[in-house]
Amino acid sequence: MRRLYSVGMRYVFLALIMVFTLFPFFWLVFNSFKPSREIFTVRPTLRIQNPTLENYKWAMGPKGANLGRYLLNSIFTAGFAAIVTIIFATTGGYALGRFLFRGRESIAIFLILSQMFQGPLIMVPWYKMASALGIINTRLVLILIYGTATIPTCTWLMSGFYGNVPEDLEEAAMIDGCSYFAAFWRVVLPLVIPGIVAIGLYSFIIAWNDYQYALILTSSDFAKTVQVGLAELIGFFGKTSWGGIMASGVLTSLPVVMLFVVVQRYLVEGLTSGAVKG
């Protein structure tokens, strides 16, 4: 009886959380199936008089949001930002999490500091640097600037994850004849996979959600991201396709969520498969 009750409670709670989390998204999806002129009503209703797929056609078509292109750019940029972050944060984090060495404190502070310097003021210097390097208006410059925002934090995060790995493991491996790097690669890294997935996701999302940097540093269709593409759709003088924007919002959110449904296994099951338990 008690067990049934607690199982019931967990579904009640799940439902509450999901309603709160998904209502705004539901509202977006729901309205994206309405013709534009039906969307804005005084009283919200749950009826659609003339359901339509027009908005989705518009969102995917070249006439409207040109979403496919921007979506690819966004996934590419955010994906690479995540990879770059993982590379730099797993190594840097290892040093910080594993060793006591001179300058550790000040490096830790430098990390936080460089993380802080984000936002409007670094745009002009970044624009200059990117112009000088000839990478303005490319996806590369976005990947690099996102790296500066994510690597410091993620190095921190990783150092925490390494802290959970017992030291004897590396020592044992090294006594068995592994080089230091081999021990890191074969023994330690597999144990922090959940950490890697966590920072990968984090940096993916930071890059994915950015608007300001992409706006300033890119302007062609070859580099523009979804966030910028969507913001452009709201016209000042020209007609704004509200329904189209909503459909675009749905179409940009879903692929990432699906991606995660696949990835979450690794995040959550990574540790259990590690040697630590064995």
Partner: peptide, 15 residues
């Protein structure tokens, strides 16, 4: 559910 929970995180700021 674990995937859907991410929706707020990935929804573009404009929408």
């Amino acid at each position: 559910w674990r995937g859907l929970i991410l929706i707020p995180w990935v929804m573009p700021v404009v929408v």
